[in-house]
Amino acid sequence: MKFAVTASPHIRSGDNTRRIMLDVLIALIPTLIAGTVVFGLRALAVCAVSVVAAVAAEWLWRKITRQYGTVSDFSAAVTGLLLALTLPASVPYWAAAVGAVFAVVVVKGFFGGLGQNIFNPALGARALLMLVIPSAMTRFAAPGTALPLTGEVDIVSSATALHHMQIPALPEQSLLDMFLGNIGGCIGEVSALALLLGGAYLVARDVIKLRIPASYLATVALLTAIFCKDQDPLQWMLYSLLGGGVLLGAIFMASDYATSPATPGGQVLYGVGCGVLTVVFRYTGLYPEGVTYAILLMNAASWLLERFTPTRLFGAPQKKGGLRR
């Protein structure tokens, strides 16, 4: 009789990568529903195209490069869905598909696959689409517009809250509409309520820790309250938090494992950095929104933050972080 001889520990927790990705998908359901309610079935169709393209690209890429299959870990599906949620519902289907393929193959696959990528795949693809089709990426249908399910969408762009704030002026939308999602914008960013529900689920399931989202949002809140461009700092702050993709970014993008620091201290600094850059880009940039580039830049800095925030070794004085080994 021969028994398996491998190293300890011999039992493993029930947690696994697939379960984590599934939890992220579950957490995105409220947001997906909100997007569909606000923009109609076309929003759902954009998401479907993006997810299918991402999963197909993952399957093909692993096949061509002769690596074991990873479609079943659902990470490609998560990437596809997250990308779609950062797009306007009126975006051409081909753009969503191209973005999804770029995200999975170039931003993730080229770097070695899941866990090895430096940049958030969905945001990397969104950055590409902003370069390639800037007009389609920044035209947003008003909520409740009946978008045609097929063919080119020719819409009258409605001004989002962030457009108003760039003037600068307080948006015409009410804060309640902003919270519930009765506003124009990208599919996944309109309903703060749905995003917060998803975030609460992720925290309750211990998929993400609060450190990154909390430090990110707190930084944005603090900076917009201090550098307020209106008479009422509180209102300005709330519109800043509810407008644009800051909630989607803080809860679902910045908390991405692969592209954020693994040390607790690094995670807080990373969230603060995301918040600072978001506000700076919003205030000074050409586009009203800055979340995408803020997170992508912090992705690149995450190794540095980790190096400067080493964990405390048991039985030793706290080591100072630094670049030298």
């Binding site: 493993r12 927790s13 696959g113 820790k209 964990t311 048991f314």
Partner: peptide, 27 residues
């Protein structure tokens, strides 16, 4: 009870850092 995976892969979740009683970074 066999919880071992055919293709183990690090997703950098940082959970190993959180549970290490010695304050190490197992990943």
């Amino acid at each position: 009870e066999n919880g071992e995976a055919e293709h183990p892969a690090c997703i950098r979740c940082g959970k190993c850092v959180a549970v290490c009683p010695m304050g190490l970074q197992p990943l």
